Simulated assay, not measured.
Amino acid sequence: MALDNAATHKLSPELALSGPQTELLHRVVSFCERHQADDSALFVIEGAAGTGKSVVLNAIFNTLQTRARSGVADDPLRGLRNMVIVNHPEMLKLYRNIAATMPNLRKSDYERPTTFINKSAKTGKRADIVLVDEAHLLLTRPDRYNHFAQQNHLEEILRWARIVVVVFDPLQVLKFKSHWSTDLLESFRKGRPSETFHLDTQFRVSASPATCSWIDALGQGEILPRPEDPSFDLRIYDDCAKLYADLCACNSKYGLCRLLSTYDYPYTLNGEDHFITEGDFRLRWDRSLPSEKLPWAERPDTIDEVGSVYTIQGFDLNYAGVILGPSLFYDAKNDRIGVRPERYEDSAAFQGRDGIATPEEAKKRVILNALNVILTRGIHGLFLYAHDPALRERLLRT
C-alpha cells in the first residue's frame, strides 16, 4: 500500500485534477477573465472536508499567477496583482513552502486576512484577484487580539479586491467570532456578479461510501451501524494507551500518523507543556512554535504530541487517532452523541455572542463542527477512543 509521507505535495499545483476540479479551474479562470474590469465580483467554492478544495484553489492560483507574470501581451490577466489569503497559520506555512518550489509563485503571494486588509488600508491599493482558502475561518466581528478593528473580514476583502474567490464549508465554523452561515454569505452576493460551484467527491478518506457516511454521521452526533470495509482501517478502543501504541506502530511503518483530540483538556499559551491523561495514557498537547517552518502535521516530532482542530484543519494524515473528550457523552435516550459545552476547554471559541440568536445551540454546533474536522483527517485509517465510558461502550458495539 503506497501511503503519503508529506502533506506538501498534496496541494502542489502540479497535481493532476479530477474532472470536476478541472471544470472548476476553468470556471474560475473564465469568471476572472469576464470580470477583471469590474469593480467587484464574488465566486464561491463550496464542499465538505476532503473534497479537494485547497488542491484546486492552489492550482487555480498557479494558473492565474503564471498568466499574470507571463510575457503574453494581449492576455487579459497579464500584470494583475493577485493574492491567496488564509486565516490559518499552519496552512499559510504549507502554501509558502509550496510557493518556494514553483517558478511563478512567491511566498509574498500568501497572507493572513487581517494583514492583507491592514496593508491595503495603509497603502490605499486594491488587489485584482484574491483567493480565500478556509473562508469559514474569516472573522465576522471585530477582534482586537488579532488587530482587526472592522466588522467582517470578507466585507473588507471585497473592499480591497476587485474579484474574490472563496472556499467555504459551514460545517467547519469553529468560533463565534467566525460565525458564518449560508445566509450571511448569501448577503455578500447582492449587488455584484457572483457564481457558485459545489465539490462533492471525497478525495481524502480512502474508504467505501458506507464508511464515509458512518464518519460523516458521527461528526454530526449520529451513531450508525459500523460497516465492514477492507479498504479502510476503522478501530474503536477501550484503552487510549493501546490506541496510541498502535498509532505509533503505523507511524513507524507508513509515516504521517498523528493523535488528535477534541478541545476538552486544559491548555494555556504560557510556554509550559499541558497534558492529556486518560487512564495509563499521558501525552502533551501540541506545542505552539510559530517560528517552525514545517506545519505541525509534517513535523516528525509531533507523533509525541496530541493535535487540536487548530493544528490539523486543512491537512491530511495517513492514519488519525482521535480522542473524544469530556464534552461528548452518550445520550442514551436519543441513542446519539450528546454535547456538554461547559466541558469544552476552548473558551475563546464562545467569545463574542452578540447577534447569535441561540448561543447554547450554537456552542453545540461549534463543538460538533470541530469533531467533524478531526474525524475526517485520516486517508487510510481512523482509531477512536471516547472519554465517556457509556459512549465508549456504545461505539464498541456499533
Score class of each variant (00 low, 15 high):
A2I: 00
N5Y: 13
T22A: 13
C32T: 03
C32R: 04
C32D: 11
G52T: 11
V55C: 10
F61D: 03
Q65A: 06
Q65C: 05
V72H: 12
L77F: 06
N82I: 04
I98L: 13
A99S: 09
P113K: 08
N118V: 08
K119S: 13
G124Q: 06
L137V: 01
R144D: 15
Q151P: 02
L154P: 06
R159Q: 15
V164C: 10
V166L: 07
P170E: 14
L174G: 13
S181M: 00
T182H: 13
D183P: 06
E186W: 15
S187G: 15
S187H: 14
S187E: 13
S208L: 07
W214R: 00
L224Y: 15
R226V: 08
P227E: 07
E228L: 10
S231W: 14
Y244I: 00
L247A: 01
N251R: 04
Y254R: 05
L260F: 12
S261L: 07
T262G: 15
Y263P: 00
Y263A: 05
D264N: 09
Y265A: 03
Y265W: 12
P266E: 09
T277C: 11
G279D: 11
G279P: 01
R282Q: 14
L283R: 12
W285F: 05
P290L: 04
P290G: 03
P295G: 04
W296V: 03
W296Q: 00
A297W: 02
Y310V: 00
I312N: 04
D316G: 01
N318W: 02
V322I: 02
L324V: 03
L324C: 08
G325L: 01
P326D: 12
S327N: 10
G338I: 05
Y344E: 03
D346N: 15
Q351I: 13
I356Q: 12
R365I: 06
G378N: 01
H380C: 03
L382K: 08
F383T: 00
R394T: 05
R394P: 03
